[in-house]
């Protein structure tokens, strides 16, 4: 089993074996973090471009750290610091990058489908760091890694995702990835954020928070994206917190070993109560550490020439 693909654009088209392979390698990289020297030289001389067409601090830093720990050369450009303006096509951008002979592109873009587009145009591997409301595969992978560290095999395990499912790329990547690994996913939020057709992705839709979390092994609480205009889907932060906020009261109804995840950054006392965010059930910092490891694993697995001619395992 190897990662025989050029790009990672989403978890929708990744097989369970591929996901497990990435997580396997990621756990090897996590071991590297505990050493005095927290980098390995494998990507020395390779250039990775981080193209962030939408602002993001956490994901960009996580990717940068992953690339640095692989000893890659890094070029960052984001809308704020470049001359890319509205109207310039992604094709122009892609052709420029191609001409500069980069080895890999990490792209964050506000338009759904933009990673797919760049992957089609570019010869080098493309990693989707979040496209619009579509997918955020590295977040999905790090969430799954965090769950597996605590739950082991995810078959039959119950994961409840709470928030604006309709506009969340994190939700979609979680749903696809968890589904492939056999977890039972429930999504929860007001109907304005959880349209009924979400059930067609193979998840259970539950509008009542207490019922949604009662049997859960994990809660994955999404950030309410006020900036995405999702605000019209609920009357306000206070009401959201009252109806869907994960508070101490909610936590008390959980299974004793159930734990809580959040992709960050948190809106404290909106989707998650401060006491819960700082409480013993959350594993948010594990998620952050796993994020770097997962990204290292993907960058490593996607690097190296012709994806059709991967070395057999013995070659190492």
């Amino acid at each position: 089993m190897s990662l025989k693909r050029k790009d990672v654009l989403g978890l929708e088209d990744m097989a369970a074996e591929e996901i497990l392979l990435v997580l396997d390698i990621a756990s090897q990289f996590r071991a590297v973090f505990d050493r005095p020297v927290r980098s390995v030289p494998i990507m020395r001389g390779r250039t990775v471009v981080n193209f962030f067409h939408e602002s993001s601090t956490r994901t960009r830093i996580s990717f940068e750290l992953a690339e640095k720990r692989l000893s890659a050369d890094i070029v960052n450009f984001s809308v704020a610091t470049s001359s890319f303006t509205k109207g310039e096509t992604l094709r122009d951008t892609a052709e420029n990058l191609q001409a500069m002979k980069i080895d890999m592109l990490v792209v964050r873009h506000k338009s759904s489908g933009s990673a797919q587009y760049l992957a089609r145009v570019l010869k080098c591997p493309v990693i989707n760091a979040g496209d619009g409301c579509h997918e955020h595969p590295t977040q999905g992978l790090l969430d799954i890694m965090t769950m597996r560290q605590r739950l082991g095999d995810l078959r039959g395990k119950r994961v409840t995702i709470i928030g604006d499912i309709a506009h969340s790329r994190v939700a979609r990547s979680n749903i696809w990835g968890l589904g492939k690994l056999g977890a039972e996913v429930t999504v929860c939020g007001p109907p304005t954020m959880v349209p009924a057709n979400v059930a067609r992705l193979g998840v259970k839709v539950e509008y009542d928070l207490k019922r949604a979390v009662a049997k859960a092994d994990v809660l994955n609480i999404l950030r309410i994206q006020l900036e995405r205009g999702a605000g019209s889907g609920f009357p306000g932060n206070r009401e959201y917190h009252r109806m869907y906020g994960v508070t101490e009261d909610v936590v008390r109804t959980l299974k004793p070993e159930a734990f809580i995840m959040h992709p960050g950054p948190m809106n404290r006392n909106v989707e998650i109560a401060s006491e819960v965010a700082d409480g013993p059930r959350q594993v948010i910092l594990d998620q952050v550490a796993n994020g770097v490891a997962v990204r290292m694993a993907l960058i490593y697995l996607l690097s190296g020439g012709d994806p059709g001619a991967l070395a057999p395992g013995e070659a190492a």
Partner: peptide, 11 residues
């Protein structure tokens, strides 16, 4: 607005 817009994350 339907299954595909939801799946693709398009408005």
């Amino acid at each position: 607005g339907g299954y595909w817009s939801m799946r693709l994350g398009l408005s």
